[in-house]
Amino acid sequence: MHKPAQTWSIAELATQYDVTLRTIRFYEDRGLLTPERRGTVRVYHPRDRVRLGLILRGKRLGFSLDEIATIVDMYDAEPGEEGQLVYLLDQITTRRADLEQRRQDIDETLQELADVEARCQADLKALRSRQRASS
């Protein structure tokens, strides 16, 4: 016996992904999500749920919506189309280099903060020590 695929309402997806209804409608307006319509009710299928997850991950990683659209559309395409795979590999290389640079910048900033914190702690200890000695 065939079990019907699970579906979600817009509110359920919004709750599950911790986004607003407006965010989901925006992605729908951009053509990134295409829920089924039952009258005025949007019904989201597993494909929409996966695509929303990919969109949000792409946003977190700094991809533009156009880049996300291209990549997410590959989710539906037949695998192995050379142009798509080359494009995706190029995007991965570019994004990886950007993220590695950001990681390096963050590591350097954290080290600089640790150095400033250590100096402040030492200055505070010396100041308190002098205050105790003079009282």
Rank of each mutant, 00 (worst) to 15 (best):
K3A: 02
Q6R: 14
T7S: 05
T7W: 04
W8S: 00
I10M: 05
I10Q: 03
A11P: 00
A11T: 13
E12R: 10
L13S: 01
A14I: 06
Q16Y: 08
Q16T: 12
Q16N: 06
D18V: 05
V19Y: 06
L21G: 03
T23Y: 06
I24L: 15
F26L: 14
D29N: 03
R30Y: 06
R30N: 06
R30T: 02
T34E: 13
R38V: 11
R38Q: 14
G39H: 08
G39M: 08
V41F: 08
R47K: 08
R49K: 14
R51C: 09
G53M: 07
I55R: 02
L56K: 04
R57G: 00
R60C: 09
R60K: 14
L61K: 07
S64F: 11
L65K: 00
D66A: 07
D66S: 05
I68F: 07
T70V: 07
T70G: 01
D73G: 13
Y75D: 03
Y75W: 12
G80C: 08
Q84W: 05
L85W: 11
L85S: 05
V86W: 02
V86E: 12
Y87A: 06
Y87H: 13
L88N: 00
D90R: 05
Q91N: 05
T94A: 13
T94M: 09
A97S: 09
A97V: 07
L99N: 07
Q101A: 14
R102W: 07
T109A: 15
Q111K: 11
Q111F: 06
E112Y: 05
V116S: 08
R119P: 00
Q121G: 01
A122C: 04
L124T: 13
S134K: 11
S135W: 06
